[in-house]
């Protein structure tokens, strides 16, 4: 970068350097910006943080549309609370996985599923379960209050509740039976480790 150039009137040219410095600065900022955009995750698969994790699960206060109402924490099984809607395409896609998970869970008595219908009609929900199968309880969302209490952003969304009634994991988007089972195993192993460490 030279400053010995002179302009027509004979004054020193400081401008060209200023332009170069500014260009370099903007280049660096823009490069950082691009790197940031490049590394930012797709908004639909954000990490599943939630204030309800680690807390006692909020109540499921909605009317039962199918099956019996569920009292969380009163049984010794893992519970997958699934928020869904019949009009939501990923929900339809995840349904067979939920069925798989519910069947496995019922077989060995380790886990069960409860669904909360989100912004939906009772008749549509009944038709949906007739067509897609599945026989676990389905509740309505208590005019949206349940979804608000659980902090549901958009369906499908599922929460894994430990047998003691504490929410341990939030799954956004469709679930896979195998993944949820792996999660349960992980948390159980963790729990055992904690107990051993504590005793």
């Amino acid at each position: 970068m030279s400053t010995h150039e002179t302009d027509a009137v004979g004054g020193p040219v400081r401008h060209s350097n200023a332009v170069r410095i500014a260009a370099a600065a903007i280049g660096v900022v823009m490069a950082l910006f691009v790197v940031m955009l490049f590394t930012s995750k797709n908004s639909s698969d954000q990490p599943s943080a939630s204030p309800v994790i680690g807390q006692q699960a909020p109540a499921l206060g909605g009317k039962a549309l199918l099956g019996e109402p569920v009292d969380i924490g009163s049984n010794d099984r893992w519970l997958l609370v699934n928020f869904f809607a019949t009009w939501c395409v990923p929900c339809v896609k995840e349904h067979p996985e939920l069925r798989q998970f519910a069947e496995n869970g019922a077989k060995d008595g380790s886990a069960r599923v409860v669904s909360v219908a989100y912004d939906d009609e009772a008749s549509a929900v009944k038709k949906f379960f007739e067509k897609q199968g599945g026989d676990w309880p389905v509740l309505d969302a208590d005019r949206g209050r349940t979804a608000l209490d659980w902090g549901v952003a958009k369906v499908p969304e599922s929460f894994l509740v430990a047998p003691n009634g504490v929410v341990v994991h939030r799954l956004q988007g469709g679930v896979k039976a195998r993944e949820v089972e792996a999660l349960i195993e992980r948390y159980e192993a963790q729990g055992r480790a904690n107990q051993e460490g504590g005793s």
């Binding site: 912004d119 005019r143 949206g144 979804a147 608000l148 902090g151 549901v152 952003a153």
Partner: peptide, 23 residues
């Protein structure tokens, strides 16, 4: 509105928005 993208609860009819308005 928790279930929408960038809409305010004042301007959406989703159950979640209604629940927030009630709250």
């Amino acid at each position: 509105c928790p279930s929408c993208k960038s809409q305010a609860v004042a301007s959406s009819e989703t159950p979640a928005s209604k629940a927030v308005r009630e709250l």
